[in-house]
Design a protein around this nucleic acid. Structure first.
Lengths: 141, 141
DNA sequence: CTCAAACCTGGAAGCTGTCTAAACATGATA
DNA sequence: TATCATGTTTAGACAGCTTCCAGGTTTGAG
């Protein structure tokens, strides 16, 4: 984490306070990985990056922070790969393209796919998310 | 497996032969779990059910069979839950409703959601699947 | 300054899925 | 029928991702 507060950091701190998340040192570290560059990362990828930069933040803490962020709604889980959960700092509705060969995951603007209205949901349930996953494979591979 | 061949079993055997899958005893066991009742099951669920009925079929074999079935296109993977892969005996295009609280996974007819045409794919990739996942939560839970 | 609550940590443990090596079955051939 | 190569099944070991746990540390209120 930079010793001087960046513009981003202030807004991330504000966002956390606003959602009832205490902006601890470690949580800010984790949040920065997702918000600074708009990437889709897994918990372990985030943990690795911090470790590579010599920053102390245990694996359990990364997992706890991410789960908390999801609960509080400042990030989203993206479930496209069995055995791996990606996290996405963009919470606005949008879709995803997932390359099953490379594991590459890219965003797709919500307008890129025309999507009709929500179907009837099972009794006693409420909508959490409705989105399209486009699964692609490398050509001639 | 019933000692008398059911209608279903004959058609499953035919399907396998047709797709180049040798219909072994164990593979038929696994296939029946998916085709007899139209349920979405995980590999371990299938293994458990067979074990509960006192039928011998190792865990590795269940995993191998399912992977083979997917390769040969007689079933489909459904990725909606982190850390678990569901299998679906319906290979026609359709969508899914997933209850994140209960893990219940239900089909949604392809016509239940209006879906626009495929977006531009990344260079060098081909479409494998495009479907909608509707994620729901139990109300007031 | 004190205390309780919240937080972080390393390691153990759990679950899903894959791999391995050996036993077993099968089908073709002679 | 005997032989052989190929394909299949198996138990258990292993690997990756995630959660749990018990103990220590930090934080904020009073």
């Amino acid at each position: 984490m930079p010793d001087h507060k960046t513009q981003d950091e202030q807004s991330i701190t504000r966002l956390m306070n606003h959602r009832g998340i205490r902006p601890t040192y470690q949580r800010l570290l984790v949040a920065h990985q997702l918000f600074d560059h708009q990437e889709h990362l897994t918990a372990d990828q985030i943990h690795e990056r911090l470790k590579d930069r010599g920053i102390a933040c245990s694996r359990a803490t990364v997992y706890n922070a991410l789960k908390l962020f999801v609960d509080k709604g400042i990030i989203r889980e993206v479930i496209v790969d069995p055995g791996r959960t990606y996290y996405d700092s963009i919470t606005d509705p949008h879709h995803h393209i997932f390359n099953v060969d490379t594991g590459e995951l890219t965003d797709l603007d919500v307008n890129a796919i025309q999507l009709g209205k929500t179907p009837n949901l099972p009794r006693g349930t409420v909508l959490e998310d409705m989105s399209v996953v486009v699964r692609v494979r490398n050509d001639s591979a």
